[in-house]
Design a protein around this nucleic acid. Structure first.
Length: 801
DNA sequence: CAGTGAGCGAGCTTCCGCTTGACTT
């Protein structure tokens, strides 16, 4: 048996370290925390000293048993969990649960997985830092108390199955606040003036230094330009430079993968996990931008050899964020020699991104020469300005340029034609275009993570799960929204003639953005009203300060909790007793037809509009209509609400049966002879006519006929259908899997019955199905061929901007 | 998969932060 047992958190890490340490060491992983607070409401002694009750998680029992056995056999146990609060707690829990002897237990830390770092750690062991452990306990206990006391208040006052917490509730608030900010936004417009000149056969653009608030002013300006002369007054050449971004952290990786590839944060993380497991990148849950000395040296070599010495600029980045705990390195390729990898297309793309970002961070700054030409207009004091950029030295831009969240299309760097001071210019045209101001952008998953990180809320390991939680609870939806049309004015001076045009543009269209739901808004308002402290963006930062004091031994952890819990719990009790139940009811006005009041509120099945009050009179029953996706009780207008009651609408008659059009959970549909047909986006549910409806119904019939691959005489209910994932068995309302290798023409009724029976049995054993199956992102199916790494010569092309 | 919304009340829900699989209608 091995003399030394080393315990780390991650199995992939264990494998690597084992190689560095040789045969005297067995390296095992504990897979993160092995113990947590007991499940129910009694895990914390709130009546006394707040002492917690811990339990070994069910899925950790086996690994704990194995570690117990190995630790008994070893001469020395090295606790090598991460060097941060959580890591320290993991080591402490291990020593408690495994009942480790202090004399044969050592605590070691390293924040990079390199041989020198590991060996150095082994030479410098220490004991477990109990203060740091206490800081973690305080963190854990506080989160449990907040979550498990607030959530039940929501069950009583808003809706069951809701949740609240230090992190998620603030995340929702950010989205709610942003939505309201956008709804209240005042769109102002001003006229931007751009002139185009002909300089020696080339076009050159120049913009006026000011914008005009009114069309009249813009018009007057163009009038004065009619016979003006345009002269170059000044030419200024300014050198400037651009620096590469630091290598990725979890948050910046999520942002770039979202901007450049459109991945959601959980997609990015599961692809990165695969790359990590195959030893291709360093750990992907990190808040550090630090690179190991080994990595910096190897990047320097690689860059010098492949790009030339002047492209190399070894650089040590430091993290600015206060809340960062830096237990790991930045995310980087394990070996810079692996320019390309084998794997799924997604894995290749993400690896490429990580690779380029890391290598660029060690490359020289780009040198840019900026030219600014000032142009005077005769008779007017305002001046035009033309700017041009020349890239003198590309540096890191050879491989990578970071994207921005701001989607304003900057036309990019243009070169100016050769110009001379005093030169007069040939005007092609001057155009004044009405431009509108824009509100702050709605959050994407990744930009929300960025904001949370700035506020110090949440950790790299929880960003993606938090974003999933707030969507699962229905507080927030990720959606595309169609833009709206608006008119703008454009006035053009060309050949001494002024033309005015009214044009249309689309604005406010959104792709994969986060929108709050009614529930999200109600819960945010309710919590903000009664639990201001928890909803404050600075709450996490202020408790973090206290945790730090605990870690430094300046504060006793349960005293801190006691001070928080007293007033907090009093508010919980008070709110439970006195606050009213929230249903977001809002009066919109009166229905012009019936004169009855129209209002919206939140019901069991979601938000709905109602005409008329509830009453006992059977003949006076109110009318109901569900709100459509994207409509909120907070903002819906009377007109829009009345519109909802125009459905279901009788469209016509076909084969002796009525055709009706309406909008359901999955969008607009037609119903005919109790069969449903979706109405495509190109048609309008309020305007669709009989002929078009029949066309759609017949189209659906053909599609259904094609869907049927096989039926059985023995039971007409049993069919083989062609679905999104290939052929499957359908019987009544149930669907059953069919193995992929099964040949359809050989399939008999007996075989099908067997499959159905077998599946019924296994599904009966499973836990009763929850109301809604959680959506999961598909994990990449194909694993990367182990260690088969193509070392190619520089396939890195210039990064897209 | 699809037109609901009353009221009573069983029993359940829920946090954040470490980790990796499981498993897709």
């Amino acid at each position: 048996m091995s003399k030394n047992l080393v315990i780390v958190e991650s199995p992939a890490k264990a494998k690597t370290i084992e190689k560095f340490l040789g045969s005297d060491y067995t390296v095992k992983s504990c897979f993160g925390h092995i113990r947590d607070l007991a499940k129910g409401d009694d895990a914390i002694n709130v009546k006394g000293d707040f002492s917690p009750t811990y339990e070994v998680n069910d899925d950790k029992k086996a690994i704990v048993a194995e570690l117990k056995k190995l630790s008994k056999e070893a001469n020395m146990v090295w606790l090598a969990s991460d060097e941060d609060r959580e890591g320290e707690a993991i080591s402490w829990h291990l020593s408690e649960v495994l009942k480790l002897d202090d004399k044969k237990t050592k605590r070691i830390v390293f924040h990079e997985i390199t041989k020198p770092a590991i060996l150095k750690a082994i030479e410098n062991p220490r004991g477990i830092d109990k203060n740091l452990v206490d800081a973690q306990q305080a963190r854990r206990v506080l989160d449990r108390l907040v979550g498990f006391e607030l959530s039940p208040v929501l069950w009583r006052k808003v809706k069951s199955n809701l949740s609240a917490g230090r992190v998620q509730s603030v995340a929702v608030r950010l989205i709610v606040d942003r939505e309201r900010e956008i709804n209240l936004f005042n769109y102002n417009s001003a006229f931007r003036v751009v002139a185009i000149f002909n300089v020696a056969g080339k076009q050159m653009e120049a913009e006026l230094g000011k914008r005009f608030e009114t069309e009249k002013e813009a018009q007057a300006f163009l009038e004065t330009c009619k016979h003006a002369t345009f002269t170059i007054k000044n030419l200024e050449v300014k050198p400037s430079e651009k620096s590469p971004a630091p290598p990725f952290t979890t948050s910046t990786l999520q942002q770039e993968a979202s901007r450049k590839m459109g991945y959601g944060v959980s997609t990015t993380m599961s692809i990165a996990q695969k790359l990590y497991e195959h030893g291709l990148i360093t750990y992907m849950r990190t808040d550090s931008v630090n690179l190991s000395e080994m990595a910096i040296a190897s990047a320097k070599n690689y860059i010098s050899e492949n790009f030339g010495e002047k492209y190399s600029r070894p650089m040590r980045y430091t993290t600015k964020n206060d809340s960062a705990q830096e237990a790991h390195e930045a995310i980087r390729p394990t070996y810079f020699e692996n320019v390309e990898i084998d794997g799924t297309p997604q894995e290749k793309r993400l690896y490429d991104l990580i690779y380029k970002r890391a290598i660029a961070s060690q490359m020289a700054k780009a040198q840019i020469e900026k030219t600014v030409a000032t142009i005077t207009i005769s008779g007017i004091s305002e001046q035009l300005v033309a700017t041009g950029e020349v890239l003198k030295f590309d540096g890191f831009l050879k491989v990578y340029l970071e994207s921005t969240d701001d989607d304003t299309e900057d036309e990019g760097s243009k070169m100016l034609p050769p110009l001379k001071i005093g030169e007069s210019l040939n005007l092609i045209q001057i155009q004044a275009t009405e431009k509108f101001t824009r509100p702050s952008a709605r959050y994407t998953e990744a930009s929300l993570v960025k904001r949370l990180e700035e506020l110090g809320i949440g950790r790299p390991s929880t960003y993606a799960p938090t974003i999933s939680t707030i969507q699962k609870r229905g507080y927030v939806v990720k959606e595309d929204r169609e833009g709206k049309e608006r008119n703008f004015v454009q006035i053009t001076l060309k050949n001494n003639d002024i033309q005015r045009q009214e044009k249309q543009e689309k604005f406010a269209s959104e792709k994969s953005k986060l929108f709050p739901s009614d529930i999200g808004m109600i819960v945010t308002d309710f919590l903000s009203k009664h639990f201001e402290q928890i909803m404050d963006f600075g709450f996490t930062a202020s408790v973090e300060e206290e945790f730090d004091k605990i870690a430094r031994g300046q504060l006793v952890w349960n005293k801190m909790i006691e001070k928080f819990y007293g007033p907090f719990h009093a508010t919980v009790t008070n709110t439970s007793e006195h606050a009213e139940r929230q249903n977001a009811e809002r009066n919109l006005g009166f229905d012009p037809e019936s004169g009855k009041p129209v209002f919206v509120k939140l019901g069991r099945y979601g938000p709905f509009a109602q005409i008329g009050e509830n009453s006992d009179d059977e003949t006076q029953k109110p009318r109901y209509a569900s709100l459509r996706a994207g409509q909120l009780t907070e903002t819906i207008t009377l007109t829009d609400a009345l519109e909802l009651f125009k459905l279901p609408r009788l469209v016509g008659n076909f084969e002796g049966k009525d055709i009706k059009a309406a909008i359901g959970r999955f969008g607009p549909y037609l119903v005919h002879n109790s069969k449903f047909v979706s109405i495509p986006k190109t048609d309008d549910v309020f305007a669709i006519d009989e002929a078009r409806a029949i066309e759609l119904i017949e189209g659906k019939r053909i599609a259904d006929a094609n869907k049927l691959l096989k039926s059985f005489d023995e039971d007409p209910e049993v069919k083989i259908l062609n679905g999104r994932w290939g052929p499957y068995i359908s019987k009544g309302k149930g669907n059953y899997k069919l193995s992929k290798t099964q040949k359809l023409d050989e399939l008999t009724f007996a075989m099908v019955s067997e499959i159905i029976e077998a599946e019924e049995k296994t599904s009966a054993k499973k836990v009763p199905a929850k109301t809604v199956a959680p959506k999961k992102t598909a994990a990449p199916k194909k694993a990367i061929a182990a260690k088969k790494v193509a070392v190619k010569k520089l396939p890195i092309k210039k990064a897209k901007t």
